[in-house]
Design a protein around this nucleic acid. Structure first.
Lengths: 188, 188
DNA sequence: AGCAAGGGAGAACGGACGTTCTCGACTGGC
DNA sequence: GCCAGTCGAGAACGTCCGTTCTCCCTTGCT
């Protein structure tokens, strides 16, 4: 097994375990066991747990946003429809087995006060999501697209938290209905 | 120092430390140091860390909801105004020094998968908040008060998460504006 | 005064965890 | 065949943490 394969296997294991059980609850030894990578190589690829955590979050950020953007760009029929398609994607995500909320909200709550690097990646994820939503609302004929995007972001985050804690994916429907109302009001 | 005083001092220290730095990052020894209660007494009052955590969350839940309800009941001029007063209270909370998001969202992300007791208290808090909001919307002349309450809950949770991660209390304003729109639409 | 009960300070214990070290096996180049 | 380098398995190390134990002091009762 070469270094690259070890890296991806480590990131795969890290994502599975950290996301499912929380970061502090998962020791480096279970990452080793679940990845099949030796401890020596693990520390060659990631010189500390924090760097592994950071890499896990960065990769998840990229994949998560790409998946959302792909869904929206292929499913949305019109610019007016795109913001609503976000919530359809959310519903599918919430219904996935093993869904446990937003990895960035979770890691921020757990380590945000302790690890500035983790807090930075978490904030970067939310900033990127906000920027994405602003891109969607900028294509609409509304008075204040940024304000609308921030309202949609609030709904996205709220729905994610509620779905995680209640285990009920229908939080996405509630948020979508609210988004529809906000969108209609803004398009007046 | 008697047992009751020790208990409140322990809960005070627990709330300060657990909320500020996260639960797993705070050892029982710092609770002892910050409370001035001996380790022996600590374990008389709370036989394990988990029971202390649970008690901390329960007390915070009660106080948090009482504070919100008091603010809303004294400030809201009308039933139509009450849901919006929630977001004014949120703004004041977000602006408090040391605000670090919702203790229940944070503890759920950190321990929800590991500790069923903590997860239970967290869910109970959110259920109680939802019930409170449903009480507010039930007093309105709207077609589906429960659906409106769930939309408001989504905004509350989203604003809290965003304010925590960005450090910007104006997330409450964004959510309030959205709530105003949703309320106006429902009252049509 | 003497004694029992309880309390405080902190040492001690047992386990977990992040990280490093050891050792034996394997590989590729000469 | 031999050497240098690399690797995997796992032991080892140091630290931290939840929890318990020890020891001594105080206090209140007789």
């Amino acid at each position: 097994m070469d270094r690259d394969e070890a890296t991806t296997r480590l990131l795969d294991a890290a994502e599975r375990e950290f996301y499912e059980r929380g970061i502090q609850s998962v020791g480096m030894d279970v990452i080793r066991a679940r990845s099949g990578v030796s401890l020596k190589r693990l520390y060659q690829c990631f010189p500390s747990k924090e760097t592994l955590v950071e890499a896990y979050l960065r990769r998840r950020d990229e994949r998560w946003r790409r998946s959302l953007a792909e869904h929206v760009s292929t499913r949305a029929l019109s610019a007016e429809d795109a913001p609503l398609a976000v919530f359809d994607w959310l519903h599918a995500w919430f219904a996935e087995e093993g869904f446990r909320g937003c990895a960035f909200i979770n890691s921020f709550g757990e380590l945000g006060a302790t690890s500035p690097r983790v807090a930075g990646v978490d904030r970067a994820h939310k900033d990127a999501l906000r920027a994405y939503l602003r891109g969607l609302t900028a294509a609409l004929d509304v008075a204040d697209p940024d304000a609308l995007a921030d309202q949609l972001l609030t709904l996205v985050e709220g729905a994610t938290v509620i779905a995680a804690m209640s285990g009920d994916p229908s939080a996405a429907h509630t948020a979508k209905a609210a988004a529809k109302t906000l969108l209609a009001a803004a398009l007046q």
